[in-house]
Design a protein around this nucleic acid. Structure first.
Lengths: 346, 346
DNA sequence: TGTTAGCACTCTGCCATGTCGAGTGCTAAA
DNA sequence: TTTAGCACTCGACATGGCAGAGTGCTAACA
């Protein structure tokens, strides 16, 4: 189903115009603004064809045309030219990062806020997955007479902590000992795998210290039973209020309450991870999440050591500036990968 | 400026009615719904008086009356009866808490979400202030060949961490030593005070270890230069979309973008901390934050060991159900104080 | 003196109506 | 195949009339 040159041009003109004005676009406008060298009447004929093929739609008789999801899809796949950010835009973005990388959460938050600020859409960033990281360090610290604080650090820089109840008999020295054994056995192992195999070895090691054995095993179990949820950062939710398609309060509510659910954000972001090119555009009804049927998302992943560890995405109306947005998302993920590389410096 | 009995009753009826219907209330409605034993005409006279005194207002001629800020203030101070939650409501609230307290952030988040869920307003919770807590434990952990992770734990259960660059010469053993010295000297001291006096002692202690002295001092400086911002949790922002006074998108945008700024939230919450009773109601234009002039806030503080460590608040339209809301906020802070007490168990 | 009934008046919200402009589809001519 | 012309459709907007809610005022009443 390939379109002839002129149809492509008309479709492109419609989409470009609609993206920038948010108004149904008529034959006259196209003839005037985009120099196709033909009269409105001719364009009307082309438009009738395009409508029949499903690339554009008419909100009602005697209104202009509006791109359909299929139209956007064609645009994204075939018509859109891949842009590059200008030198200037890149420096603006880079300038917004605070200088020093001190912790990974801050970097992700910054990235997120820059992304939503530049694109004017809503953006999300998902951090490295805790369970897929390797354990770097475990420490049990006495907290008060009958509680201990557990700190688990992964090599992707994530730190998790929680407080455990401590059996009476366990002393500070015992905690130290347990920490040591765990570190010795578990360092460098991925959090995922720890539960399965290695605990036996710890059993063996600790069996030399009979008096705390039972208590210790409970503690280790609890220690590793951490909150495995990876965090999703969200920014620029209010940007949707500036989109004319969200002048309706009901819609705003629906979308915002979707965005409050981390589950949904993860679902959106997981879309991209399957794609080979790393960047993925989902348009309107292609979205698996109900209630996002008139939104589009662009997602991409970032890497540490070539290993995909997280993703980044934006959400906007289907009338999104795909050309620009794709290019910004791409730049941000690249840069994020680069930061990670510098930070973990191999 | 004390009102006679009947005026009080009329004002109370107007406010009650307006709170529940959000419609300007007329003399007829009051005469019918609230049994004052007089005719609408009489009530009209009373209303004219009340309007002259500034307790109520008329949106336009031939509309009913609406309470003014002054009217609400009088209601809150004099007319409102202090309610108590029913047994049943209390069990519902308590039931929403997940059983085990594992970390302080989770407790605060839960409290927040319960509060906004029950009141149907937007709620905020501010955690213990990091700088006012006492240091419980510091640990420098090697992260990779030239970085270390610092973990600082306070006795209010806050954990902060960040990554530092490490000078070449410092070994794992050195880090351990530095941690030890810091723990020995700083445990139990409030974060506020650490910077001022105690660092000298550490200087002295570490001067025995000449070879790492300079590096160590830098590290300690950096360690203590943590992010001092206390976190404010926000929940139920979308609840405002259900309030008829926010049917207007512009207003929604103004309010939501205010709520995105942590600074503003802190300003709101700080209101209450000056009050003696612990609970504080701010109505409409009383609000210092511009853009909150047609909102009311109710804030209260919670304690650990009788020491005020954080606060809790809700934001709603001035047409807020003060009676109910005050009572819920009060209950929540009491309960929060109780949780804290159990948790830190003295 | 306080309370009430009655009445004229005002303002909003709603609906029906009419008009204007934008845009289309169709047809016939170039 | 392209274009000009024309009739038609639909939404946006302004207008006017009407109903309903509520008030303020006045005069009568207890």
């Amino acid at each position: 189903m390939t379109l002839d040159e002129r149809k492509k041009k008309v479709l492109q003109a419609i989409i470009r115009d609609y993206i920038s004005t948010a108004e149904p676009v008529g034959s006259r406008t196209i003839a005037k603004k985009y120099e196709l060298g033909v009269s409105p009447a001719t364009i009307r004929n082309e438009m009738a064809d395009l409508e029949e093929l499903g690339y554009i739609e008419q909100p009602h008789t005697s209104a202009g045309r509006v791109p359909s999801d299929k139209g956007y899809r064609y645009y994204v796949d075939c018509l859109m030219k891949k842009q590059k950010l200008t030198e200037q835009e890149e420096t603006i973005i880079l300038g917004r990062y605070k200088t020093k990388v001190q912790d990974i959460g801050t970097v992700l938050r910054q990235t997120n806020s820059i992304l939503s600020g530049i694109t004017k859409y809503t953006s999300m960033v998902m951090g490295p997955q805790f369970t897929k990281s390797n354990l770097r360090y475990v420490q049990l610290v006495p907290f008060d007479s009958n509680k201990a604080l557990v700190i688990v650090v992964t090599d992707s820089g994530l730190v998790q902590n929680k407080i455990l109840d401590l059996p009476q008999s366990v002393t500070e020295v015992d905690l130290q000992k347990i920490s040591q054994v765990m570190n010795a056995k578990l360092q460098g192992v991925s959090i995922d795998q720890i539960k399965l195999t290695l605990i036996k070895e710890i059993y063996y090691e600790l069996s030399k210290h009979k008096h705390i054995f039972d208590a210790a095993m409970d503690l280790i179990q609890e220690t590793l039973d951490l909150n495995h949820e990876e965090k999703v950062y969200l920014a620029g939710t209010l940007n949707i209020l500036n989109q004319p398609e969200f002048r309706d309060l009901g819609r705003v509510r629906t979308l915002l309450s979707l965005l409050e659910q981390e589950k949904v954000l993860k679902e959106i972001l997981s879309e991209g991870s399957s794609s080979e090119t790393g960047i993925s555009v989902t348009i309107g009804a292609e979205n698996r999440v109900d209630g996002l049927k008139d939104c589009s998302t662009i997602t991409a992943t970032y890497q540490i050591d070539g290993r995909t560890v997280g993703s980044v995405g934006i959400i906007g109306p289907t009338r999104m500036d795909y050309e620009k947005a794709v290019c910004i998302v791409e730049f941000m993920t690249c840069h994020l990968s680069k930061i990670m590389k510098d930070f973990y410096g191999h």
